[in-house]
Design a protein around this nucleic acid. Sequence first.
DNA 1: GCCAACGTTGGC
DNA 2: GCCAACGTTGGC
Length: 151
Amino acid sequence: MTTQYWLVKSEPATYSWDDFVRDGRSDWTGVRNYAARLHLNAMRRGDEVMFYHSNDGKCIVGIARVTQPAFPDPTADEPGLPASGGAKGGQGWVAVELAPLAPLPRPVTLAQCKADAVLKNTELLRQSRLSVSPLKPTEFTRIKKLAKHSA
DNA sequence: GCCAACGTTGGC
DNA sequence: GCCAACGTTGGC
């Protein structure tokens, strides 16, 4: 099975990479956006996920791994309904479980992504408010490569 | 079903 | 602190 790649955002003031590493794993709950939910539902165990610090940081800081695919978000009003249950399914929100895989040697900044020919068209940049977005394998590889060089 | 008003996110 | 982008809500 081919590994898929994703990017999730977190405000470090709320939940930082360091918090994530300390916890060793995290249920990625509270996503209340249909496009983001679509992506959560498409995640499979073992997919790799870039961890982005929004607001304070504005950089990609580490790589996580999907350890549990989508399950009903326990923080939703009515968890457990089928997530595919119709366009108006305000319920049926889902979460996934992520675990830290490795920090990036150097964070990759938003400015670097914008300036990069490969990364300038990522969903992260095209739709800046989307909290969970897909990455193409080429984009994922590019981020890893940029993380090896000085900013 | 359209659209204006409003709230939220997130970069600057 | 401001503002742009986007989603949601509610009047009609």
